[in-house]
Design a protein around this nucleic acid. Structure first.
Length: 454
RNA sequence: GGCUGCGUAGCAAAAUGGCCAUGCAGUGGAUUGCAAAUCCAUCUACGCCGGUUCGACUCCGGCCGCAGCCUCCA
């Protein structure tokens, strides 16, 4: 029985889909004006695992992740760079795919873009005005009237009066109330703009997700995900918009993943303390980053540190070492009564990937001890369990050896083995020292010498 | 100030009212020409103070410390 921690109820709820056997999932994606950083990687990997797991236990999942391709930052960056908004966003959408693909994340079923959803966005704003949840101001802005939505604050646990007391909301003369938020922004000169009943303008940030989720998944769907920082105000506002306009509950389960931190501070663009996925992948295999992300539960903070990546790398090396030279059998983990059952228990408990990885480690150890027939089964089990986490899907050689030229390595190994055959240990060690200097580790086994890169 | 969440061994990270997490690192042993890999064994825990209980890392209360949100942010 799958349980999901629901930000709306603040507890683990038993997951019951709206329509039996089907799951509709919407995840807030990237604003495309720069490269993805490790925080973005976490969202991608976490929800990738959610999708993989839900599918593996039989759900027909529709996975939507939007792309925000128009907003203040995009406009500012395009101006800075002296390029068009379209050129900028297309470039970074392409970069995003490079990172997402490297990390082995499955493509969402649909990736709606804000700029391609204008009719839906405008219709939604019109509905909100008709129903009295929104008002147009003199300058062509349209605002959501927070006081009209009784349940405002239900997701983030906020109370309107307290927000007002906070006094940190900037005063804007166009708004009736400082807490009201913008649905449609009137265009300033030179800004990209779309026609609307309120004049030329562009959508506010929150409205696009309400429009696109309803378009792709309907007015009421199962799971909405995103980073914890989106819980307020973005998701709170999304609820106000969707539920105000549609008059029904919009989302059953809200999932929020924790932050990536550096030195105990949130990794963020505004603090400037971020690593891009691209930078990390220069030094580590994508699978290492993915493994690192999954070593922590998705709701916990994840402290980014190089030695943690080294640990992840060492662990993966052991997994692939165990898989090396074993012909993996075709196995369905769902049929395995021991490890498979415990894996399911772990994942059913709000996607507990650290516990799931502990079970994979047990399989690995059993595999190392097993006789050939059992080994083949356990290797198959390991690979198919790994698949649900997006791990262990390469060949052992691809991970351990890489695909750089290895002729020199093979020559040295041959030299060393010739020396060993003659019991010329000094010469053998010279060859090995050369290999060590090249970052190569040698392993003499019963049937020959194998090697791997450090 | 308001609202969340967290504090587990050298590092990372789970579960659990009474028994093993797990990974990386360390130590001892087996194995090896020596290594590596592997196996066996093993050392380090539950922020502090009270309470509930036969028994608490686990439940309750207080304290301390940390992070996040309240403003753009995955």
């Amino acid at each position: 029985m799958l349980k999901i921690h629901n930000s709306l109820t603040k507890q683990k709820d038993i997951f019951t889909p709206i329509e039996e056997g089907k799951v509709s999932l919407y995840v807030c994606g990237m604003t495309v004006y720069d490269l993805c950083h490790v925080g973005h990687a976490r969202v991608m990997v976490v929800f990738d695992v959610v999708v993989r797991y839900l599918r593996s236990v039989g759900y027909d999942v529709t996975y939507i992740r939007n792309i925000t391709d128009i907003d203040d930052k995009i406009i500012a960056r395009a101006n800075e760079n002296g390029e068009t908004i379209q050129a900028l966003t297309e470039r970074f959408i392409d970069e995003m795919y490079q990172d997402a693909d490297a990390l082995g994340t499955l493509r969402p079923d649909q990736e709606p873009k804000a700029t391609e959803s204008m009719p839906e966005i405008i219709t939604l704003i019109e509905t909100l005005i008709e129903k009295g949840f929104a008002y147009a101001s003199d300058n062509g802005d349209v605002y959501y009237d927070v006081s009209q939505f009784d349940e405002y604050g239900k997701l983030s646990g906020r109370v309107i009066e307290e927000l007002r007391a906070g006094e940190r909301v900037e005063v804007n003369e166009q708004k009736d109330d400082p807490l009201d938020f913008v649905l449609w922004k009137a265009a300033k000169s030179g800004e990209p703009a779309w026609d609307s009943p309120w004049g030329q303008g562009r959508p506010g940030w929150h409205i696009e997700c309400s429009a696109m989720s309803a378009t792709c998944l309907g007015e009421h769907f199962d799971i909405h995900g995103g980073g914890q920082d989106l819980q307020f105000p973005h998701h709170e506002n999304e609820i106000a918009q969707s539920e105000g306009a549609h008059g029904c509950q919009s989302v059953n389960y809200w999932m929020h993943n924790g932050f990536v931190r550096i030195d105990d501070a949130k990794m963020s663009k505004s603090l400037g303390n971020f690593f891009t996925v691209r930078e990390v992948l220069k030094q580590y295999a994508p699978e290492v980053l993915r493994y690192f992300i999954l070593t922590s539960h998705y709701r916990s903070p994840l402290n980014y540190a190089e030695d943690q990546l080294e640990q992840a790398k060492a662990t993966l090396t052991r997994f692939y070492t165990a898989l090396r030279d074993v012909a993996a059998a075709e196995v369905r983990w769902q049929d395995d009564k021991d490890y498979g059952a415990r894996f399911r228990e772990a994942m059913d408990d709000d996607f507990n990937t650290p516990l799931a990885l502990a079970i994979l480690a047990e399989v690995r150890q059993a595999l190392n001890k097993a006789d050939p027939q059992e080994a083949s089964y356990l290797a198959g089990l390991l690979v198919c369990l790994g698949a649900e986490l997006g791990l262990l899907q390469q060949t052992a050689d691809a991970f351990l050896l890489g695909d750089d030229d290895d002729s020199e390595i093979l020559t040295l190994i041959e030299q060393r083995n010739t020396a060993r055959a003659e019991k010329d240990w000094a010469a053998a060690d010279v060859a090995r020292d050369s290999l060590t200097a090249m970052g190569i580790v040698i392993e003499d086994g019963a049937d020959g010498t194998s090697w791997r890169r450090i």
